[in-house]
């Protein structure tokens, strides 16, 4: 269950965002849609515990994360939330597999067979010992999805996963995300300005 209430965030007392309340049951996915500058990324960072709200509450699976310390939030995020960024990013001194092992280490989970499962379900198992810099764009995107789901998170947050893609690839990526989420029993929240995604979600919020 995911519930937010009266979320509010100020940047330097000048820009302030008031976010609509979110309420999501288990196994429900959500699309949050809005144009640029309206605070989409801010909302995603609030949900991920990367930012602290000025007021309001965020309840993720029975845990009010606005009441946690920085250290506890970091731990909670590592174990329960996977994030897919707009541009795929990796630790470049590590191979794809080592990146996933690092994610597992930081999330307190160690399971090499799961890494193999995920990489093969994303069809990039043959790239596991490559440096992420050497992957193609499509492979990078899939590897970054692998990073987000390797710790079996309850929630996957995706920030503009399709904004720079053509229609065909957009279709492919969103389907992949949804499939991975349901295969691994995670909820998916996508934040985007991309109207093409609307048809893939039953539930959506406009900012």
């Amino acid at each position: 269950m995911i519930k937010t209430k009266a979320l509010k965030f100020n940047y330097n007392n000048q820009v302030s965002f008031n976010f609509p309340d979110i309420s999501l049951n288990k196994n429900e996915n959500l699309l949050i849609i809005g144009s640029s500058g309206i605070g989409k990324t801010t909302l995603l960072h609030l949900l991920a515990g990367l930012l602290q709200s000025n007021s309001g509450s965020i309840n993720l699976y029975g845990q009010d994360i606005s009441k946690l310390t920085q250290h506890q939030i970091d731990k909670f995020r590592g174990q329960n939330i996977g994030i897919v960024f707009q541009k795929p990013h990796f630790v470049n001194s590590l191979t794809v597999k080592e990146n996933l092992q690092l994610a597992q280490y930081l999330g307190n989970k160690k399971d090499d067979s799961r890494i193999v499962d995920i990489l093969s379900s994303l069809d990039i198992l043959d790239k596991e010992n490559k440096n992420p810099k050497k992957l193609s764009q499509g492979e990078k995107q899939r590897a970054s999805i692998a990073m987000a789901i390797v710790n079996s998170p309850k929630l996957i947050l995706a920030d503009e996963p399709t904004s720079s893609l053509d229609d065909e690839n957009c279709e492919r990526v969103i389907k992949l995300l949804k499939k991975q989420a349901s295969d691994f029993n995670a909820q998916l929240i996508v934040i985007t300005h991309d109207n093409r995604l609307k048809k893939h979600f039953k539930k959506s919020i406009k900012l």
């Binding site: 990367l50 995020r77 590592g78 994030i83 990013h89 630790v91 690092l102």
Partner: peptide, 18 residues
């Protein structure tokens, strides 16, 4: 140069101290 990497490592659950 690795600022983004650091941020990524944090989002993966690393504490500031780590």
């Amino acid at each position: 140069d690795r600022k983004y990497e650091m941020a990524l490592i944090r989002t993966l659950g690393s504490s500031r101290r780590q």
